[in-house]
């Protein structure tokens, strides 16, 4: 893990963490291939909060799946931290993703039979990132960080959707990755809960994480520091958002109160 990270850091140019070049994806159908992505070029800087915005079918989910390596492009390249992720073998990519990328899904996707703590330690277990004896402790701290420590030993079906998404975010943080990627993370939540989740995302940015989210909701997109609009497989606009509509004063920064940076923890 350390080697990958060091290699990644050395490969970064001008603070560019994610570099997408000429990405093309065609979904084959018997009738005619559907071009989901028609040559995407994109750079994401360290510490950026990028929103990829577009209508259904615009290709934004396809793009994010290329960045997480869940789906592979027909041509073009994705480099994250200097690593060309689509040139890796399946297992290499899986291991790399587990350690360097946290993924948050619209439907939370927690494992139903495991408790919340176990859902988080599982990620550490697969990647073998923290000593066995330390994992539960770290998972509890992460749950604390997302504000649901009191439910730590419940199974996912016993908590609400918003709480499940918090656990999913804590799980994404389990191996202390540099990048968090989220596909419609609040698509299934009511507006109040969604607000809470975005507050949590803002906290992550302040901790130095890079965040990429996908949404079809303009309002949500406005909360990011940069908004990329995509339509019919092309980027049609990219603009910085100097004043993210994130009213930090409206809520207490949970992070600053009760969280020790995972990096510091890792060093402990």
């Amino acid at each position: 893990m350390e080697i990958a990270k060091i290699a990644g850091k050395n490969g970064r140019e001008n603070g560019v963490l994610i570099n997408v070049k000429d990405l093309v994806k065609i979904y084959p159908t018997a009738a005619n291939g559907v071009e989901a992505l028609k040559g995407i070029n994109l750079e994401v800087h360290e510490g950026e909060f990028l929103a990829i915005f577009g209508k259904s079918g615009a290709g934004k989910s396809t793009l994010i799946n290329m960045i997480t390596g869940i789906d592979s492009p027909d041509s073009g390249e994705v480099q994250i931290g200097g690593a060309s992720i689509h040139s890796m073998s399946d297992d290499e990519l899986t291991r790399w993703r587990g350690r360097n990328l946290g993924v948050v899904y619209q439907f939370f996707q927690l494992l139903p039979t495991l408790t919340l703590v176990e859902n988080i330690t599982l990620a550490m277990d697969f990647c073998d990132t923290y000593p066995l004896a330390k994992r539960s402790e770290r998972a509890l701290q992460l749950l604390d960080q997302v504000g649901i420590r009191e439910h730590a030993h419940k199974v996912p079906s016993k908590i609400s959707g918003g709480q499940q998404q918090r656990v999913a975010i804590a799980r994404a943080l389990a191996n202390d990755p540099d990048v968090i990627v989220a596909d419609e993370p609040t698509g299934n939540l009511d507006s109040q809960t969604a607000d809470d989740i975005y507050d949590l995302f803002s906290d992550l940015i302040s901790l130095g994480k890079t965040l990429v989210i996908v949404t079809h909701d303009q309002e949500i997109a406005e909360r990011a520091s940069r908004i990329l609009e995509i339509s019919d497989g092309r980027i049609i606009s990219s603009r910085s958002n100097d004043a993210p509509s994130n009213d930090r004063s409206a809520h207490e920064a949970t992070l600053s109160l009760n969280c020790v940076s995972p990096r510091i923890q890792a060093a402990l």
Partner: peptide, 9 residues
Amino acid sequence: IMRSIGAVR
């Protein structure tokens, strides 16, 4: 999901 959080085959 397990693969996406780092489980190799």
